[in-house]
Design a binder for these strands. Structure first.
Length: 571
DNA sequence: ATAGTATGAATCC
DNA sequence: TGGATTCCCTACTA
């Protein structure tokens, strides 16, 4: 035991308030001689960087632990510890500024690159691409070069896109129905191909939900389909009531929607769990009806083909992305069945000729700066490509027959990667004949009348214009999963464990899509249940019944057409 | 009210 | 190439 001075068992703690002065020099003097240079420096550095606020704060996390060790050391009877109550940034631990929510507005740490566009030198508040003030389009250089796709496919495939945008895209008022039956976060959504009121949802637990949103009280959840994440679902083009699902359990299932009985088409883990290095998970999936194929891809970069008639795997797996990397998306061209689009964690989206599927033989590789969450051909002509990447950018290639070396546009949009959220994917509006409208949830929150909300953005991908943002003051969670109805004016959203159906109110007027952003608010405004602030009060405890309110929402943004009405149904 | 936790890409060496 | 560490505007439960 080291000799002790006669003191109380704990060192004296001096709490220093809002002062910029360094720890007292007497303290350092006392330490000298007993501790070697390195230790002292370490402690000093700690003090400098960890001038946490209250003691309890200082005692949490790793820094806190080290602090506690420091306390122990000091028990040997040395100088008082100086804690500062000086406010410190919780992101970079430096003094002089603070990051975090101020009311419903998040203040970035200025030491970090902009949270929105990821460029240094400014914060989200002053970002030139900030969605709240401007549309963040980065035009890419255009060249008139031609690419290999042209020679192969262009003669067969004439792009047939209406140049004129429809005038009736965005309703001015919406209702939102809510259902909650998933016990884990929603990972994918799919509308029924013929029944207009059926929405399918998959979750992280492996369950599949069927929601007839016209019959609001009926719910169906099939719990024994998969044992973990349902990553993608597609309806069987030849049989309306059956759905293919690809899961991280390594199987493709074909689920009968009426009974919930599922058939396993393929199992990549027949020997069960042999450790993470061998466990195969299925992510990307699509169905090619012309060829009668289900296409799936795994977390090691491989593509598998399954014949839909025999339910047998065809051929050997093909390496289509970097070996060992996850292939998160597959999309068959809606017009040309020989064209396939894939994307994954190797930062590429790749275009393939199905007639020549072999490792390294993609027709084109579209480079991204980060993981590509999704890549889709445009839904009607199949001649455009829209990708969502974890670098907070949407990328658009206006023609697969044009210059594919760089995207036609990059649109800065906040859809940050967060391990606790389902990855964001920008989805085309399948009804838009001009193929220029996409929907995607927003990560970053905006202060809407004192509530921090995460809207769902409608973006004109030909201009980068934010056309509309949809939100409900009652919905404070982030909505990464969105899908637009193939025929009706319906938006389906998966947000955490809940599902939403947004529809125009009956008296709603269709509104011309023009160069002005519309804020579409659903629900009550005054009773904001924002993050942690704002007055909290009566809940809509009227589960299973409609409540309709018409309180006025005052926006902090002028001249917005705001409406409110909450048709809320919970289960 | 708050602490714990699930859990994945990037980065570093 | 691989293991440890960091990131730090999540959502929920105990």
């Amino acid at each position: 035991m080291a000799p002790q001075t006669r003191r109380t068992s704990f060192p004296k703690v001096v709490i220093e308030r809002d002062s910029d002065s360094e720890p007292s020099s007497s303290e350092e003097e006392e330490e000298e001689g007993e501790e070697d240079e390195d230790n002292r420096e370490e402690e000093e550095a700690e003090r400098g960087e960890n001038e946490e606020g209250e003691e309890e704060e200082a005692l949490e996390n790793k820094n806190g632990e080290r602090k506690a060790e420091g306390l122990d050391a000091k028990k040997k009877g040395k100088a008082p510890i100086t804690l500062s109550l000086k406010k410190v940034c919780k992101v970079c631990k430096k003094a002089g500024h603070e990051a975090g929510f101020k009311g419903a507005t998040y203040i970035d740490c200025p030491m970090k690159p902009c949270f929105l566009c990821k460029m240094p030198g400014h914060t989200t508040m002053t970002c030139p691409h900030r969605v709240a003030t401007e549309h963040g389009v980065i035009p890419a250089p255009r060249r008139s070069t031609r690419n290999p796709l042209e020679y192969v496919f262009e003669r067969q495939l004439r792009p047939d896109i209406l140049p004129i945008k429809p005038t009736f895209v965005i309703p001015d008022q919406v209702n939102c129905a809510v259902i909650r039956y998933h016990s884990r976060r929603v990972t994918c959504l799919e509308f029924h191909p013929t029944n207009n009121n059926i929405l399918l949802s998959g979750d992280k637990k492996g369950q599949v939900g069927v929601w007839d949103f016209a019959k609001v009280h009926e719910k169906m959840v099939y719990g024994n389909v998969h044992s973990c994440i349902v990553n993608n679902m597609r309806f069987n083009p030849t049989k309306d009531d059956s759905v293919y699902a690809a899961s991280s359990d390594g199987t493709i299932s074909c689920i009968d929607m009426e009974t919930g009985i599922s058939l396993s088409l393929m199992n990549l883990n027949p020997d069960g769990w042999q450790g993470p290095s061998s466990w195969r998970m299925l992510y990307g999936m699509d169905v090619n009806s012309e060829k009668g194929l289900v296409l799936v891809a795994d977390n090691f970069g491989f593509l598998y083909l399954v014949d839909t008639r025999s339910n047998n795997k065809i051929g050997e797996a093909v390496l289509i992305h970097k070996k060992g990397s996850k292939v998160v998306g597959l999309h068959c061209n809606p017009v040309q069945p020989d064209l396939l689009l894939s994307c994954g964690n190797d930062h590429f989206a790749r275009i393939w000729d199905m007639r020549r599927m072999e490792a390294g033989s993609s027709l084109y590789a579209l480079a991204h700066k980060r993981v590509v969450n999704s890549a889709y051909f445009s839904p009607l002509s199949g001649s455009k490509i829209l990708t969502t990447s974890q670098d907070n950018r949407l990328r658009i290639w206006d023609s697969i027959f044009g210059d594919l070396d760089s995207p036609s546009r990059e649109i800065v949009h906040s859809h940050d990667f967060n391990r606790h959220l389902t990855p964001f994917r920008a989805e085309w509006d399948p009804k838009d004949p001009s193929e220029s409208l996409a929907v995607i949830g927003r990560y970053i929150s905006e202060n809407y009348n004192g509530a921090a909300l995460h809207p769902i953005d409608f973006i004109d991908i030909s201009t980068g214009q934010l056309v509309a943002e949809v939100m409900d003051p009652n919905i404070t969670t982030i909505s990464p999963v969105n899908k637009l109805h193939p025929r009706d004016d319906v938006l389906a959203t998966g947000s955490s464990r809940s599902l939403f159906i947004w529809r125009p109110k009956e008296k709603s007027e269709p509104v011309e899509r023009k160069d002005e952003r519309r804020i579409i608010v659903c629900g009550r405004a005054e009773k904001k249940r924002s993050r942690k602030f704002g007055d909290e009060s009566d809940d809509d405890s009227g589960d299973d019944k409609f409540t309709s309110q018409s309180t006025k929402l005052k926006s902090n943004k002028p001249e917005r057409n705001l409406t409110r009405c909450s048709n809320k149904v919970k289960r």
